[in-house]
């Protein structure tokens, strides 16, 4: 059975847990759920815009210059997202710090733009890009959930209305295992998730072989 272009990025070709792309923001900003959501949204926006623009610009740009142009394109889009966040979500922008700007040289985004610009169908390109972005966000969210719940005993979302934005987990928030929210904890949690993804993949391959044979 083949999934649609969008769903492929969520599990089978998850950029973070299967291809290990975009590791540095994943390790750096996965200590709070709100940061993971913010960065994930940024990645999806930049990916969609960059893939669409690259796909449309490709016929008029000489082959040799393409990587350079894509770099400038992605950097410009990241700057746009950065400025928009500074204007409308200054608190989140402050939390993300330099890692939002570093998306300009993110291997996941640059690699995907380079790969998808050659495709023929624009709508398929966009669905693939959205799937990759959503898969990245999902994996980032998973890491952040584990790290924040164990490492701080809270779940930080965005404040609206009477809700302050932070859910405290009773018991855990008094004595959280701080080491999980340090850098070593990021590597540990990522390692376990990658191992889990590998195990699921192996199980699926066995099932496919059984049904084929």
């Amino acid at each position: 059975m083949r999934e649609g272009a969008f769903f492929r990025g969520l599990a089978r070709e998850n950029p973070l847990l299967v291809y290990l792309l975009g590791l540095c923001p994943a390790l750096a900003v996965s200590d709070l759920v709100s940061k993971a959501l913010g960065l994930g949204a940024g990645v999806i926006l930049v990916l969609l815009a960059a893939v669409a623009a690259a796909r449309l610009l490709r016929p008029v740009i000489p082959e040799r210059l393409q990587p350079l142009v894509w770099l400038v394109l992605v950097a410009a889009l990241v700057s746009l997202v950065d400025l928009a966040m500074q204007a409308w979500l200054p608190a989140l922008r402050q939390q993300l710090g330099v890692y939002l700007q570093l998306l300009a040289v993110n291997c996941l985004i640059l690699g995907l733009v380079e790969r998808l610009a050659r495709r023929r169908s624009l709508s398929r390109c966009l669905r693939l890009a959205a799937g990759q972005g959503a898969g990245f966000t999902l994996a980032l969210l998973l890491i952040a959930l584990v790290r924040e719940v164990l490492g701080s005993g809270t779940i930080t979302l965005f404040p609206f209305g009477s809700f302050g934005g932070v859910i405290r987990i009773p018991g855990l928030s008094l004595h959280p295992a701080r080491a999980v929210s340090l850098a070593a904890g990021a590597l540990l949690v990522l390692g376990y998730l990658v191992a889990l993804a590998g195990r699921l993949k192996a199980g699926r391959r066995r099932a496919e072989q059984r049904s084929a044979g």
Partner: peptide, 10 residues
């Protein structure tokens, strides 16, 4: 080392 960095106070 893990518990030292996690619960430095206690």
């Amino acid at each position: 080392v893990f518990v030292m960095f996690s619960w430095t106070g206690p």
